[in-house]
């Protein structure tokens, strides 16, 4: 309720009470009209006090709800920002693994691939990114990276063969999918 309306209602109710008071007190011969006056205006002011307190509480509640909604929006934006930054970090990690494979530092590549797997699982299970990700296709990427980790592991420990070109191909596919997700997020913000 606006301030003007509050003043109008207060003035109107004051006039009504004043009218009632004049009406009642006009027939009175003794001095009870003074007491009646105090009672009537006292009641009016008490009612107004209760109304103002109620309106104040209501206004505090509204402000608190507004603040809560703003905080929720901020958290949402921060989460989106972190999801976005997670994907960028993952793309960087893939570049790093590519470089390790090129310079034949397979042990370091394996360590980074294990981190990559965790990052991919986190991205896949991030509900904020759900609308931008093709879940089935993304699971296949995780599956391929998971198998590559196991093959590189066997290569290092048991000297089994691993096709590094295929590993690079899987990394490239993963990187492309992540770039697509970034692009989708960027376009949806425009």
């Amino acid at each position: 309720m606006s301030k003007t309306w509050k003043i109008i209602i207060f003035v109107l109710s004051f006039i009504i009470v004043l009218g009632l008071f004049l009406e009642i007190s006009s027939g009175e011969k003794n001095k009870t009209w003074v007491l009646n006056g105090f009672t009537m205006f006292g009641t009016l002011l008490s009612l107004w006090g209760i109304c103002l307190a109620y309106m104040q509480i209501h206004s505090v509640k509204e402000t608190s709800e507004k603040i809560q909604s703003e905080v929720a929006n901020s958290i949402k934006e921060i989460n989106e920002f972190f999801s976005f930054s997670d994907i960028s970090t993952t793309i960087e990690r893939i570049r790093e693994i590519h470089n390790y494979i090129i310079i034949n530092k397979i042990e370091l590549a394996l360590l980074r691939m294990k981190d990559l797997k965790i990052q991919l699982i986190n991205i896949h299970s991030n509900s904020k990114l759900g609308t931008y990700i093709d879940c089935d296709a993304f699971k296949l990427l995780i599956r391929d990276i998971n198998l590559d980790i196991s093959h590189i592991h066997d290569h290092l420990l048991r000297d089994k063969n691993v096709n590094l070109s295929m590993v690079n191909k899987h990394l490239e596919t993963t990187s492309t999918s992540l770039e697509e997700i970034v692009s989708k997020i960027k376009n949806s913000k425009l």
Partner: peptide, 23 residues
């Protein structure tokens, strides 16, 4: 399809997949 191990093959079956390898 092939995995990154030259002798291993993979196929998707329902929710999972199957691999077979010879060594």
């Amino acid at each position: 399809g092939k995995t990154s191990r030259d002798s291993e093959y993979i196929v998707n079956v329902g929710q999972g997949s199957v691999t077979i390898d010879y060594s």
